[in-house]
């Protein structure tokens, strides 16, 4: 292993996930490579059905089998191969090295245990502390996320949505994980509460040197918390790079489409330019580029073969045939941004 590889908390090569159902095989994730450095935050962006959550679940080996089948050439967290891990070893890794914040705080908590007990549970298991000590530390965690420790004895239904999400964050961070996967952590929250939760996550990330994968459909949130961005479409990464590269020098037509679909807060007269059509059926993906049927720039070439991710300078990668065929090809957003 060379030095460069040692610095990555997460390495995935050629991840494929398919669900073999009675109605056909759903190709949810189709050959994803991913690399995440220590203390970095990666934003995984895409619409419903792009395969963002499935990718995250595959990292934790939480894809239900059957019907889910996961295949990959490499899946390492902090240098450890997760693919062949035994169930007992996996239990040690989950919650300790890598933990996940789920989208819906209302259903992620157990209604019959107090929030203190739920935070203490993972501390007890992973840090081998006595119940008293674990509860003590659970109180500390609550304070860390801005909830008075006296409330540790209350049940989830006694908390508001924003508070519940803070509890979920406290559980995820309780054992100081090296990698935190946050699956739409603020989607169920109001904007003012969302701002508070994002701020809190940013602070905690700095404090504990945690790496993070932020799964979201909100390009605004990505701009606020992420270092790197990967845009997913139909189970593939179509563009990835640093925030500056993807936002400042957008190259993939789908990424451009996402930006154009957002109302511009500074120019209310601007007409929205939606992406026409719909996401392809994952049981029946087109042969060529999956985005081609909706793409304004598509040519016959695009429908022939699925484009590979190619490096276009720095860490910036894009999967689009047009650039390969024509070195002068440019999408409209780039022309405007200069």
């Amino acid at each position: 292993m060379d030095k460069n590889e040692e610095r990555d908390i997460l390495r995935i090569e050629n991840l494929n996930v398919r669900f073999e159902t009675e109605d056909g095989v759903v190709h949810a994730v189709n050959g994803i490579d991913m690399k995440l450095g220590y203390r970095k935050t990666l934003g995984l962006v895409g619409e419903t059905g792009a395969g963002k959550t499935t990718t995250a679940l595959a990292m934790l080996r939480l894809v239900p089998n059957p019907p889910g089948v996961v295949e990959c050439d490499r899946l390492e967290i902090d240098g450890q191969d997760v693919r062949g891990m035994s169930a007992s070893k996996l239990e040690q890794v989950r919650g300790k090295e890598i933990s996940m914040i789920f989208q819906d705080p209302m259903t992620a908590l157990n209604p019959v245990f107090t929030v203190g007990e739920q935070i203490a549970e993972s501390i007890e298991i992973h840090e081998h502390l006595s119940k008293e000590k674990a509860l003590e530390k659970a109180g500390d965690m609550l304070e860390l996320v801005g909830i008075p420790r006296q409330r540790a004895n209350e049940y989830p239904h006694q908390f508001s949505g924003g508070m519940k999400q803070r509890v979920v964050i406290a559980i995820a961070l309780a054992c100081n994980p090296k990698l935190l996967i946050a699956d739409e952590p603020t989607t169920a929250l109001d904007v003012t509460i969302q701002a508070q939760v994002l701020e809190l996550m940013n602070e905690l990330k700095e404090k504990y040197d945690t790496s993070m994968i932020m799964i979201t459909h909100d390009l605004g949130i990505v701009a606020e918390v992420c270092d790197d961005v990967a845009v997913m479409y139909a189970g593939r990464i179509v563009e990835q790079g640093s925030l500056e590269e993807v936002y400042g020098k957008t190259m993939h037509p789908y990424t451009e489409g996402l930006f154009n679909s957002l109302p511009n807060i500074k120019n209310r007269q601007a007409m929205l330019k939606p992406i026409h059509g719909l996401m392809p059926d994952p049981t029946n993906l087109p042969e060529g580029c999956a985005f081609a049927p909706r793409c304004n720039y598509a040519t016959e070439e695009c429908k022939k073969a699925c484009p590979a991710l190619r490096n276009v300078g720095g860490t910036h990668m894009v999967a689009c045939v047009r650039y390969e065929k024509d070195p002068n090809f440019m999408i409209d957003r780039r022309k405007q941004n200069g």
């Binding site: 003012t192 701002a195 390009l219 605004g220 990505v222 701009a223 930006f259």
Partner: peptide, 18 residues
């Protein structure tokens, strides 16, 4: 004011007072 300042803006280098 609080509501408007809480909107995440999908642009680079957008600095503002929350």
């Amino acid at each position: 004011q609080a509501l408007l300042s809480a909107i995440p803006i999908p642009e680079l280098g957008h600095q503002r007072q929350r």
